[in-house]
Amino acid sequence: MADHDTSRFLAGQTGLIVRIPEAEPAVRAWRQRFDPSARAGVPAHVTVLFPFLDASRTDARVCSALAAVIGSHRAFDLRFVSCGRFPGVLYLAPEPDGQLRRLTEVIAERWPEAPPYGGQFTEIVPHLTVADGQDDAVLDEIEAGLLGSLPFASRVAAVDLMVHDGVAWRERASFALRE
């Protein structure tokens, strides 16, 4: 759910994320400086699907269907041992990432009108964005600062539906995975 400018987030946009609270000590300060989604209220996370349906469409029926789809998958553990990059972006790479990819695929199959990344990219690459829209020198500095905080592990037990209210991102619902 990263963007170069928080003003590009639109009221009513939604996204599905898995929170990674174990990342906060390592990434909070960097994300507040270099990730507009953090400044807009999104915690450290790996995106499952963004954008999802407009908030006006995420009614009780959609939430019930999300609960069923997500609840059919088991909770799982992730490790974060390394960084990765896209152009201008530094991220932490979750391992293994197969279950995250599968969650994205099954939700996108159920709601084909909400393709991952708005259909911009064909490959699903699960990641925890730390910095967005920066040059390589800044990304190098951040990566060097992060290396001492790795590795760490996280248990993924839920997927959260986040909604942008025009000012900030807020959690609308949380859907548990099976234990």
Rank of each mutant, 00 (worst) to 15 (best):
R61N: 03
S37I: 04
S37R: 08
A40M: 13
C63H: 09
P25I: 05
P36N: 12
A65F: 01
W30V: 03
F76G: 04
R28G: 08
R57T: 05
H73Q: 12
S56W: 11
G71K: 09
S37P: 12
H45R: 04
A55L: 09
P43W: 02
S56A: 15
F52D: 00
P36K: 14
V48Q: 06
H73D: 07
G71I: 01
F50T: 10
A29R: 15
F34M: 03
D35K: 03
D59E: 02
P36W: 13
D77T: 06
L66R: 04
P43C: 02
W30T: 06
A67E: 15
V62I: 11
L66E: 01
R33V: 05
V46L: 08
Q32F: 07
A44P: 11
V69S: 10
V62T: 09
S56K: 15
S64M: 05
D54L: 12
C63A: 11
A67G: 13
L49D: 05
D59N: 09
L53H: 00
R33C: 06
S72K: 13
V62G: 02
V46K: 11
S64E: 14
C63N: 14
D54H: 14
A44S: 15
R39A: 12
S72T: 07
L53Y: 01
I70Y: 03
A26K: 10
A29N: 15
S64H: 12
F76Q: 09
L49K: 07
H73T: 01
A75R: 13
L49I: 04
G71H: 06
S37M: 05
S37W: 03
T58I: 12
A55W: 08
D35R: 03
L53S: 02
S37D: 08
A55V: 05
V48T: 04
L53G: 01
A65C: 03
